[in-house]
Every structure is written in structure tokens, then in C-alpha cells.
């Protein structure tokens, strides 16, 4: 069955440089720099990436950062808490707009 997402395509990520080398190379160099140990540990960055992957619902990123967080020694509880952080921010982002709705209600009702 054909699908828009194929797990095998993740391995081809590097091939994006074939059509635009300069930008692609800069992106991958930047990517590698971002995930190096810095003020945040590589492990902390991996958990952030896992949460963001869920927030943006990228199947490639979810596969990649599930493996990566496991490799970096995170446990299932920590990983699911990261997903809840993503869910809380996404849910909160919807709910906080409730104040805009409330403002409008005030504006147009007696």
C-alpha cells in the first residue's frame, strides 16, 4: 500500500543536498552543531527534540528521537513526560485563545 510517509525515506534525508547543496550542507552543519553537548546536555536536547517531534507530528522525527532518547539512557517514563509537555503546550495554546474569545464575547454582548 502506498503512503505519503515511508520509514525508509528517513535514511534519504541527506539526499536533499542533491537539489540545493549549499543550503543543505549549511542546514546539516547547523543541525549537528545544535545537538552537540552545550549548556544543555545531549540527552536533554534529545528529549526536547522528542517533544517537538510530537508537537509537529513528524513521523520521521518521532522514530528518530525515540531511538535517540533510548540510546541516551532515557526511560519510558521520562519520554512520555516529554510527550505530555508537548501535549500541554499544544492544548494550552488552544485554550489560551479562549481569552480572545472571551474578549470578543464582552465586546459584542450586552
Amino acid at each position: 500500500m502506498k503512503t505519503y510517509y515511508n520509514p525508509e525515506d528517513l535514511k534519504k534525508f541527506g539526499n536533499i543536498t542533491e537539489l540545493q547543496k549549499a543550503m543543505g550542507d549549511k542546514f546539516f552543519a547547523y543541525y549537528a552543531e545544535v545537538f552537540k553537548e552545550g549548556a544543555l546536555t545531549a540527552r536533554e536536547k534529545s528529549l526536547i527534540a522528542l517533544a517537538v517531534a510530537h508537537a509537529i507530528q513528524c513521523p520521521y522525527c518521532i522514530d528518530a528521537y525515540t531511538s535517540d532518547t533510548l540510546e541516551k539512557g532515557c526511560d519510558e517514563e521520562q519520554m512520555m513526560e516529554a510527550v505530555h509537555v508537548a501535549a500541554a503546550i499544544r492544548g494550552g495554546a488552544s485554550l489560551v485563545h479562549g481569552t480572545q474569545m472571551m474578549n470578543k464575547i464582552k465586546e459584542i454582548t450586552m
Binding site: 546536555t41 545531549a42 540527552r43 531511538s67 533510548l70 540510546e71 541516551k72 539512557g73
Partner: peptide
Amino acid sequence: VYNPSGAFLPGAQDELEREF
């Protein structure tokens, strides 16, 4: 001795040691 509980590779030894 830490070894991964599945089909993945171990991460950086020093970081795992700190966490353990």
C-alpha cells in the same frame, strides 16, 4: 555494565554513568 534493552545502541558512556 549497561547494555541496551533492545535493538538500539548505547549512548555516551560518561553521560549514562552520570545518570546511573
